[in-house]
Every structure is written in structure tokens, then in C-alpha cells.
């Protein structure tokens, strides 16, 4: 499974989101690769992704995608990531 985390420029905020998404996935016991990307690269990065994690501010920049787009409000809140990923990926 592939998860894409997206921020404006593809470093800094997306790196933080990647770290904490990996922590949430570990707690969920789900194996997935988490790739950080930016607005310019999201279309290519998300072509084979199941989920895109990003900020509410950037949702419109994603455009059309088959991936589930999940808005994360607090990038440091692993509980929020856990809950939202569980809904999106849980059986």
C-alpha cells in the first residue's frame, strides 16, 4: 500500500507528516510506504496511491485523483492520524 503526504514545497511540513503517519500506521499494524511530495509532484506520486494526506489549504491543488484525500488538522497529533487512517484503511 502506498500513502502520499503532500505539502506546498515537499519538505519540512510533509516530512513531519510522514514521520507521524508512519507512527500511526505502525500502531494500526498496517504496512505501507509513505512518500512525501509537493503540489507540483502530487499527480505523479499519487497515481498508484491509496491515500493522500494533506492540509485543508492544499486539497484544491490536488485536482482529480482516485486516492482518498484525508485532511489532517494537527500534524503532530498521532491520535488524529490513527483515527483518520483507521477509517480510510480499516476493514
Amino acid at each position: 500500500m502506498k500513502i502520499v503526504v503532500m505539502c506546498g514545497i515537499g519538505l519540512g511540513t510533509s516530512a513531519i507528516l510522514k514521520v507521524n503517519a508512519e507512527r500511526a500506521l505502525e500502531r494500526l499494524d498496517i504496512e505501507a510506504s509513505v512518500q512525501a511530495t509537493n503540489v507540483a509532484g502530487v499527480r505523479a506520486a499519487a497515481a498508484d496511491a491509496q491515500v493522500i494526506l494533506t492540509s485543508s489549504e492544499l486539497v484544491d491543488a490536488i485536482g482529480k485523483t482516485n486516492a482518498d484525500v484525508i485532511v489532517i488538522n494537527n500534524y503532530f497529533d498521532v491520535d488524529e492520524l490513527f483515527a483518520k487512517l483507521e477509517i480510510a484503511l480499516g476493514s
Partner: peptide, 18 residues
């Protein structure tokens, strides 16, 4: 260019560039 997405948690902005 991209909006206030750098406000990544309540009360906190992570200012940065490439």
C-alpha cells in the same frame, strides 16, 4: 503561493522554504 498550510498544529506555524 500555497496558503496557510504551514500552520500545522493549533497555534503553531512552521515557517520554511526550499
Amino acid at each position: 503561493e500555497f496558503g496557510a498550510y504551514i500552520v500545522i498544529a493549533p497555534g503553531l506555524a512552521l515557517a520554511h522554504a526550499r
